[in-house]
Design a protein around this nucleic acid. Structure first.
Lengths: 351, 351
DNA sequence: ATGAAAGCGCTAACAC
DNA sequence: GTGTTAGCGCTTTCAT
């Protein structure tokens, strides 16, 4: 006979139930389960038996309420479907598991209002800590969180007005390496496709781009510096604009994988070829970077490792004083999306 | 007496605090915040003012304990860094937000022991529901969860022994469409690179593959049917084996994006070209599918929509009786990874 | 309209 | 060793 699927809601058994079944007090059950305190072997056996028999699972709610600690942490990323955040989240999840923590994941879409909403939710959930890629707004809520003793770790962006342990890759270095590479190849009209300047990572990547030019005695063409939002459509439109800008860029530097994807698509749709017509370098070593033709040269961020690190940091009993952000190394992966460029004869470009 | 300033120890204000500050009872505060019951405008104002002043955020713990409902749901995917699960999770997150639910995300890595561990955790967290891509094991825990009134939704796999609302794409149809396409192109030695047969989706995709052959009066070459785990290394090895199998396949059907990636890499590393030497079709319309050269023909799953659907299902006050799984439509996206095949020599056909 | 009080399930301090 | 008990923060009667 098949048992009916309809179950309005059986009640979870409680410690009291177990205690009664085992003929002991609730305190004893608690002691057995937590392993703290002394319990005679005989009673322990009886309690354990009852626990198994009743399929007892201690309530994290009761426990959390009493202990004022939940072992839950919040994670706020921009877009969990983006491979970078996916890898990062993977790292967080796996480190959290090892630490006995559980992760409430939220996607802000880079929207401050959404971020605020999630911050409130996480605070109500009384998470022990939160890892966030902050939008830069809502500092009041984050301030409050901090004051309440919620451990926080910011990733990728520095929020000015107050100190929170922050984690990022060497954005300046990575950006500089990519730009120097292009410069060394002879490129002098490099298009910069970047994200919103409000984000620290964006600022730093632009800084590296400019620093490399400066050091090489090269000039940044301001008309080739484009900043855009991370949505596919706007990124694509910006990439198109950049490609057909003046002076015509001979290389493109996209500062993340969404932008890189847009750049690649825009180049192709314009009937051009990488790297023959235009060279391409981007941030983020996503799976497709090595799969497309030609494979794309990238500044790889240790996404997964960043996640692991963030989870550890946020779980550290004594969060380190913030001060300067913890910087992780990038890796510059040279593939085949760039080629040397020599200015053709003093003929004007296509006119 | 009241100590402030020490970061790391702030105490969240409680309803009692608010009540005292506003000179009312806790019950009144609760009524104001929940909007149920009658409260005079004057008191409401006073309470609200106190709430703002104290930066009060009601504890989800106390609330959950009392209400026996948390508004939290658990999500167990195999690998959050895999774009398919990432898109799915995005859908879950966004639907959950609209429903006022929060999501605890877990990655099982397809490992039954890990799945079990996470199931226990979620049950202890007293989640209202869980969405899972079940491994097929641990039915006892899931049974128990169901009995406790935890809403459940399984995705992609049917777990035999008991009924749970299940969501999947039309695996058989998708697989059949892909195979028929290849068959219509003239291919008669199609390599099948599939996942573990323990998973329903795997079985169904294989079923569609075979059904298409059967209907076309074509023969499945058993030596070209390879099942492998979803890890990069094993997938790659299997793909290599398949490509160099006998009879030599003229086309490859990979049943998910990891397998497809492995297949593509293996083909290239073998010095062959898609589609000239070998045609390729795969499940999952990941970003790179349209970006590589040639762009890959795929059976697209509505990943995000599946996530949305799953979140709605798991939050439905009256979960629908399971019965047959809810099947979502696939989309067959033809790109340029396949070309017609004509046997060079007159081989015995199938009439 | 509002205050008082009883728990929800758990831990820890305190008795014995 | 083990039972008892006082909350943790909240919602919800039940009085008033």
């Amino acid at each position: 006979m098949v048992e009916t699927g309809r179950t309005g809601g059986g009640r979870a058994s409680t410690m009291k139930d177990v205690a009664e079944a085992a003929g002991v007090g609730v305190g004893t059950v608690s002691r057995v389960l937590s392993g703290k305190g002394q319990v005679s072997t005989a009673t322990r056996e009886r309690v354990l038996a009852a626990v198994r028999a009743m399929d007892f699972r201690p309530s994290a709610l009761g426990r959390g309420l009493k202990l004022q600690r939940t072992n839950n942490i919040g994670l706020i990323v921009a877009d969990i479907a983006n491979n970078f955040y996916g890898e990062f989240a993977e790292g967080v999840l796996s480190a959290a598991k090892a630490l006995g923590k559980h992760v409430i994941v939220c996607a802000s879409g880079e929207d401050p209002a959404t971020e605020r909403e999630y911050a409130e939710v996480l605070l109500q959930q009384r998470v022990d800590g939160v890892i966030a890629f902050p939008t830069g707004h809502n500092t009041d809520v984050w301030q409050g969180a901090r004051r309440l003793g919620v451990n926080m770790v910011f990733v990728d962006r520095i929020v000015e007005s107050f100190d929170v342990p922050t984690l990022m890759v060497d954005n300046i270095g990575g950006s500089r390496a990519a730009t120097e590479y292009l410069l060394a190849l002879g490129h002098r009209r490099i298009g910069y496709l970047g994200g919103p300047q409000a984000l620290t990572s964006g600022q730093q990547r632009e800084e590296g781009f400019r620093a490399a030019h400066h050091d090489a005695g090269a000039q940044v063409h301001e008309s080739l510096v484009v900043r855009t939002r991370f949505t596919r459509d706007t990124a694509y439109a910006s990439a198109l604009r950049l490609i057909h800008g003046r002076p015509a860029p001979t290389a493109l530097f996209a500062t993340n994988n969404v932008l890189g994807e847009a750049a690649l698509a825009a180049v192709r749709d314009s009937g051009m070829t990488v790297p023959d017509d235009i060279s391409l370098v981007m941030f983020d070593d996503v799976p497709w970077a090595g799969l497309v033709t030609p494979p794309v040269t990238v500044v790889a961020q240790p996404a997964r490792r960043m996640g692991v690190e963030a989870a550890r940091l946020v779980s550290a009993p004594d969060q380190p004083a913030p001060g300067r952000p913890r910087v992780l190394p990038y890796e510059f992966v040279i593939r085949r999306s760039c080629r040397p460029w020599h200015e053709p004869d003093p003929l004007p470009g296509e006119g």
